[in-house]
């Protein structure tokens, strides 16, 4: 096991709204080693994106990190002031956002938006910054990057814009990239190209990656480890093959079972009954119990972290030990 780039311990991010406290992220722990890819999986509203924003200190009021440590290369990010965080953002830790249409500023040219990122952290000339921007565009497969630098975001397609956003994240060859559904809107060919590029970066530069997604098939091909989130908590972690082949938590089980290609042709698609609970004033106990086929009275208490197998964590009283059909 190589050194840890990121080690999150007991992180909670709560939103203090008028209606009550929304525990978007509730006491989660995970770590990513240098050059490794962690897939953070869960349904919409499970707190994946808030986790990502918490890591770079961009949770806006009324939300705030209430407890926990975020150890990035040994430094606790929750203790840093805004100035120190800004030095890391975009530089050592980069984030790729979910919506490609909205992440680039519509009224600024691509070169402006890229060069400012380079020059915010490195003391280089404008010309050098421009060259680096052009190279980064080429790296994510944008044809004729020199000309495209002077374009505006609206002159790019959605997929191209996403690639620009990815190129911006790669500018400083960061130690950690948090990618929030980065390939969701892309063609499969482009997706494969970007995944390959990202894997190469992880291998060669040692970048650690947190890949936030709901798409298990991407995770299966890309990630080394997986963390499954449900209602603000991480319910299961482990090496990706292990978890996908032998899920222990009933929720992970259901999630894998819902992948259409795993269902037999002609039969009804399987789904997890019920809906994700509202994170507002979530009751104590396992959040999944109302949808869980295995729930019983014990589930009304918070399941503690358990370590059923070496390298895996689990939060469940009744792990499912049989194989997925």
């Amino acid at each position: 096991m190589s050194e840890l780039t990121l080690d999150v311990q007991g992180l909670s991010t709560h939103f203090f709204t008028r209606a009550g406290v929304v525990k978007a992220v509730d006491d989660i722990s995970f770590s990513v080693a240098r050059g490794r890819v962690l897939g953070l999986v869960g349904e919409s509203g499970s707190g994946k994106s808030v986790t990502g924003f918490s890591l770079i200190g961009l949770v806006d009021p009324p939300g705030r990190i209430t407890t926990g440590k975020i150890l990035f290369q040994g430094r606790d990010l929750t203790k840093l002031d805004e100035r120190e965080l800004r030095d890391l953002r975009g530089n050592r830790i980069a984030m790729i956002f979910q919506d490609p249409m909205m992440t680039l500023n519509p009224v600024l040219r691509i070169d402006t938006q890229m060069i400012e990122t380079v020059m915010a952290h490195d003391n280089v000339s404008r010309e050098v910054a421009r060259q680096r921007s052009r190279d980064a565009l080429g790296m994510v497969g944008i044809p004729s990057p020199e000309e495209r630098l002077t374009s505006y975001p609206h002159q790019f397609s959605g997929g191209m814009r996403k690639r620009v956003a990815i190129a911006i994240a790669l500018l400083h060859r960061p130690d950690l990239i948090i990618a929030d559904e980065p390939t969701t809107a892309l063609d499969v060919t482009i997706q494969a190209q970007i995944l390959a590029e990202v894997q190469r970066l992880a291998r060669e530069v040692g970048t650690a990656l947190i890949w936030i997604t709901h798409d298990l098939s991407v995770i299966a091909g890309l990630a080394d480890d997986i963390a499954v989130m449900y209602a603000g908590r991480i319910v299961e972690t482990g090496a990706v093959e292990e978890v996908l082949d032998r899920p222990l938590h009933p929720y992970t089980h259901g999630l894998i079972g819902s992948v259409p290609s795993r269902n037999a042709r002609g039969s009804r698609l399987r789904q997890i009954p019920g809906m994700t609970p509202s994170l507002l004033n979530l009751p104590v106990g396992c959040a999944f119990r109302s949808r869980c086929p295995r729930a019983d009275a014990a589930c009304a208490a918070d399941p503690p972290d358990s370590f059923p197998v070496e390298g895996r964590t689990l939060r469940c009283f009744h792990p499912q030990l049989e194989m997925v059909a």
């Binding site: 806006d60 975009g90 956002f97 909205m102 990122t117």
Partner: peptide, 13 residues
């Protein structure tokens, strides 16, 4: 808006 958050995530002043 997201573009503001993204700009902040780039670490610019």
């Amino acid at each position: 808006m997201d573009y503001v958050k993204f700009a902040r995530a780039k670490g610019i002043s």
